[in-house]
Simulated assay, not measured.
Amino acid sequence: MNVLKIAATSAASLAAGAVANTFREEGIAELQAIGPKAVNQAVKCIAIARGYVASSGVDLYFVPSFVEVDVSDETRTGIRFTVRSRTPVPILRPRRKEAPPSPPEPRQTGEWNDI
């Protein structure tokens, strides 16, 4: 899975489109932000993405967690947002075709078959 990196200068609506598309394709999305402004943009991004997928009956939520990231030979603590759905996600991949139903067995009436 590809982690979307959100910066303080990220456009929330554009990042929300990326979150919505990632979620539609994979059923889950992960964002990563370092710093208070980037975290703010990430939360706005998720709120906007909720609106993008709401029309298809999906209700998104996120679970935050801490993550250590190496930036310029320095370890920094960031926040990872795992975006999931409260509702079942519609399958976007084509489904396998089901076998047609088998024909019914011939009925028997009395001693003879109807032919």
Score class of each variant (00 low, 15 high):
1 M>S: 10
2 N>V: 00
3 V>K: 13
5 K>E: 07
5 K>F: 02
5 K>V: 10
7 A>G: 04
8 A>L: 03
8 A>F: 10
10 S>Q: 02
11 A>I: 06
11 A>S: 15
11 A>K: 12
12 A>Y: 00
12 A>L: 03
13 S>L: 09
14 L>P: 00
14 L>Q: 06
16 A>H: 04
18 A>W: 01
18 A>Y: 03
18 A>E: 13
18 A>F: 07
19 V>T: 04
20 A>C: 07
22 T>H: 09
22 T>I: 02
23 F>R: 05
24 R>T: 13
24 R>F: 05
24 R>I: 13
25 E>C: 04
25 E>Y: 08
25 E>A: 14
26 E>Y: 14
26 E>S: 11
26 E>C: 07
27 G>A: 12
29 A>C: 07
29 A>D: 06
29 A>E: 04
29 A>F: 05
30 E>Y: 08
31 L>N: 03
32 Q>W: 04
34 I>L: 13
34 I>H: 13
35 G>V: 15
38 A>Y: 00
38 A>E: 03
38 A>R: 01
39 V>W: 01
39 V>R: 10
40 N>A: 15
40 N>H: 01
40 N>F: 12
42 A>D: 03
42 A>V: 04
42 A>P: 10
43 V>E: 07
46 I>T: 02
47 A>T: 10
47 A>Q: 11
48 I>H: 10
50 R>W: 08
51 G>N: 15
52 Y>M: 15
52 Y>Q: 11
52 Y>E: 10
52 Y>W: 08
53 V>M: 05
53 V>N: 10
54 A>V: 08
54 A>H: 11
55 S>N: 12
55 S>V: 11
55 S>R: 15
58 V>S: 02
58 V>N: 11
59 D>F: 01
59 D>Q: 08
60 L>I: 13
62 F>G: 00
63 V>K: 08
64 P>A: 01
65 S>C: 07
67 V>D: 11
67 V>W: 02
67 V>S: 12
68 E>D: 09
69 V>P: 02
70 D>M: 03
72 S>F: 11
72 S>K: 09
73 D>P: 09
73 D>N: 12
75 T>A: 08
76 R>Y: 09
78 G>K: 01
79 I>T: 15
79 I>L: 03
79 I>Y: 06
80 R>G: 06
80 R>N: 15
80 R>M: 11
81 F>D: 06
81 F>C: 09
81 F>N: 06
83 V>M: 06
83 V>F: 03
86 R>S: 11
86 R>V: 03
86 R>I: 03
87 T>D: 10
88 P>A: 12
88 P>F: 03
90 P>I: 15
90 P>D: 14
91 I>R: 02
93 R>F: 00
95 R>W: 08
95 R>S: 13
97 K>Y: 04
97 K>S: 01
98 E>H: 02
98 E>P: 00
99 A>D: 13
99 A>I: 14
99 A>T: 10
100 P>C: 05
102 S>D: 13
103 P>H: 04
103 P>V: 11
105 E>N: 14
106 P>T: 05
106 P>S: 08
108 Q>A: 12
108 Q>G: 05
108 Q>P: 15
109 T>C: 02
109 T>K: 11
111 E>C: 00
113 N>T: 14
113 N>K: 14
